[in-house]
């Protein structure tokens, strides 16, 4: 059987794949990460490559490649990024809808994230809300609200104080009973028995309670993410370390949590969500109590998360200036509805 993708290192084949579409390149990405192989000397042979594949090849850091059937749309991508390429046949475009969806405005990183989501290689789960109505003591706070978020998507919800932003998040978390409607996280209906057993799929970062001075170390806070999972001490420590390193907070491991700065606390909270293996992150005013540096740190961290683990993320905030910098899609919560 002929392989769809072959990768050589010094004339020796180190990787092959028989998958289709962009999956061989995603498999190659996994292989590169696992083997920690240097990518500069790799030579890639692919059957077909369009603009999408070209973006992925560039993102992976491959410098040389040979494509049997190459789309003309891939050539500017290769040239702009200094890729040495050869081909057997050149066509105007290849019959693939994905190629049309990669716009010239997209950076390589944006295209990569878009392709990951399209390939379903993101950690996030879809969030669907249908006609959700929430009343608190007879007051209508959320009014027949609808929302449809795909896997790994991000959304900012903003609105005036008292607009119901926190109520919205609490409804998704299952803290509040719905007067009407339904919320689905992936295949789980919020409030169902199945959801109760799997509710750790949602990671929650709430407004920091500055009065909480419970003596707990940052490492212990992250370990909360392990919930009731029965794993050995060594495995637990390993998972906590990985999560804390991901958010650059491992140096805080033994620090008492309440002595951390606002920005450090947010890093630790996000590490907790990663440790929990949460696939949907809900964040309630994460910039509250953060100084300028903390806000910049959080911005970088959220960008990193959306590029790597790509969980579905919903963030509630009223800080318009900071929201602008985050550059995620935005909806305003007004009159109990998303505008």
């Amino acid at each position: 059987m002929e392989h769809s993708l072959i990768v050589n290192l010094n004339d020796q084949t180190v990787f092959t794949s028989d998958q289709h579409w962009l999956y061989p390149l995603f498999e190659l990405e996994d292989y590169i990460k696992q083997s920690e192989i240097g990518v500069n000397d790799l030579f890639l042979k692919d059957k077909i490559a369009g603009k999408a594949a070209a973006c992925l090849i560039v993102f992976l850091g491959i410098k040389r490649c040979h494509i049997e059937l190459l789309s003309e749309r891939a050539i500017p991508v290769f040239r702009a990024n200094g890729i040495e390429f050869t081909y057997d046949n050149l066509v105007d475009h290849i019959q693939c809808r994905t190629e049309d969806l990669i716009t010239d405005k997209m950076s390589i990183a944006d295209a990569y994230l878009f392709l990951r989501k399209r390939a379903g290689r993101v950690q996030g789960l879809s969030v669907k809300m249908e006609n959700v109505t929430v009343r608190i003591e007879e007051k209508l706070v959320i009014d027949r609200l609808n929302l449809d978020m795909g896997r790994g998507e991000q959304l900012i919800i903003h609105g005036a104080n008292g607009a119901g932003k926190t109520t919205f998040l609490r409804a998704v978390l299952g803290f509040l009973p719905l007067t009407e409607g339904a919320i689905k996280i992936g295949d789980y209906l919020v409030g169902s028995e199945l959801w109760k057993q799997n509710r750790s799929i949602i990671g929650y970062v709430h407004q920091e309670n500055i009065k909480n001075n419970f003596p707990i170390s940052a490492g212990e806070v992250v370990q909360i993410g392990l919930g009731k999972s029965r794993i050995s001490k060594n495995e637990a420590e390993y998972q906590v370390e990985v999560a804390m390193r991901r958010t650059s907070s491992f140096h805080l491991f033994n620090q008492p949590y309440h002595t951390l700065s606002g920005g450090e606390k947010q890093r630790v909270s996000l590490a907790r969500c990663l440790c929990q293996n949460a696939r949907v992150f809900l964040m309630d005013e994460p910039t509250a109590f953060l100084d300028q540096r903390g806000k910049e740190d959080l911005l970088l961290l959220l960008h990193e998360l959306s590029r790597n683990e790509a969980p579905t993320m919903v963030l509630v905030s009223h800080e318009l200036q900071w929201i602008e910098q985050l550059n995620w899609p935005r909806r305003e919560l007004k009159g109990g509805k998303l505008c």
Partner: peptide, 20 residues
């Protein structure tokens, strides 16, 4: 000990971590 730690830290966080 792990569940209690979560409970004492924050009941809502404990809930979302899958703890009863």
């Amino acid at each position: 000990r792990r569940q209690l730690r979560a409970l004492f830290f924050d009941r809502e966080i404990a809930f979302t971590s899958g703890i009863n």
